[in-house]
């Protein structure tokens, strides 16, 4: 039995639009706090300063830490649902890839092997970013962080031409590979990975009804293959449910609570 397309996207995009709107609202100076105060990665950046001196680094504050705790709790329940349902940068990346999907007849995607290696880039980037942040007490990532650069309008901490080049590379990357920044570079995504692996909610495939058409895999923005496993346990799954929408047979892919 066929089922309606994009049903879950109609649920997800308003949620993402709401979070993007709130970020823009704060970035424009409305509200009592900076948009940066809500960034969960700020919580990761503040940890060492808190452990070492009991003080927050740079502009970081309690909200960064409490948002990190909220997001990690979410990861234990719903894996990287924060990325798929709330992150403004992820949403912009997804819109860019959807836009470029209209241009590309066939995207020049890297092979699965190269894609796998490139995904490992997130980890050294996370280590380097945290090492220098902890060493200097400054948010050194700001100059390279699309979240900060876009929403602050290249504010204090951006690196002029270097930041423009970084953002240019990320934009070009987004036009070539869907979710380019999230896939290969996002340090928050790297932080989530072990928690996401433990997450309770997963996409589960019903083998008896699956016709193995591969439509779900083609729609996955992170190039995962729900059609090749029974339970999709990959830590990159953001539970965006694009695969569920793309599935050609109703109830073949479902969201389930399973260990």
């Amino acid at each position: 039995m066929l089922h309606s397309r994009h049903a879950n996207r109609w649920l997800r995009y308003p949620a993402l639009t709401l979070f993007l709107g709130l970020t823009v609202y704060l970035a424009l100076g409305f509200g009592s706090r900076s948009f940066e105060a809500f960034c969960p990665f700020g919580g990761v950046e503040s940890l060492w300063g808190l452990v070492r001196g009991g003080e927050f680094s740079c502009t970081l504050g309690p909200l960064n830490l409490s948002m990190l705790i909220g997001v990690l709790a979410l990861a234990l329940l719903a894996r990287k649902a924060f990325c798929g349902w709330a992150c403004p940068i992820g949403f912009l990346g997804e819109l860019a890839s959807r836009l470029t999907g209209l241009i590309w007849r066939r995207r020049p995607l890297p092979s699965p092997k190269v894609n796998g290696y490139l995904k490992l880039l997130r980890y050294p980037l996370l280590v380097v970013a945290l090492y220098f942040t902890y060493k200097t007490g400054e948010l050194i990532l700001r100059g390279y962080d699309p979240f900060f650069l876009v929403f602050s309008g290249f504010g204090h901490g951006s690196l002029g031409l270097v930041s423009w080049i970084v953002l240019g590379v990320l934009v070009i990357g987004a036009f070539l590979v869907p979710m380019f920044f999230c896939r290969y570079l996002c340090p928050l995504g790297a932080t989530f990975d072990p928690f996401s692996k433990l997450g309770l909610l997963k996409i589960v495939r019903n083998e008896s009804t699956c016709n193995n058409c591969g439509a779900c895999s083609r729609k996955c923005p992170h190039s995962l293959s729900p059609n090749s496993v029974i339970t999709l346990r990959h830590h990159d799954c953001t539970l965006c449910l694009e695969c569920v929408d793309a599935s050609t047979v109703k109830n073949t892919l479902e969201l389930k609570a399973t260990l």
């Binding site: 997800r12 909200l63 909220g70 479902e254």
Partner: peptide, 23 residues
């Protein structure tokens, strides 16, 4: 156990709000 997908935005909202309340 099958979970209705509406639970996802509710979980996201609850944990975000919880994080905010915990500050």
């Amino acid at each position: 156990m099958r979970i209705p997908t509406i639970i996802l935005p509710l979980l996201v909202a609850a944990t975000m709000f919880g994080g905010y309340a915990l500050r």
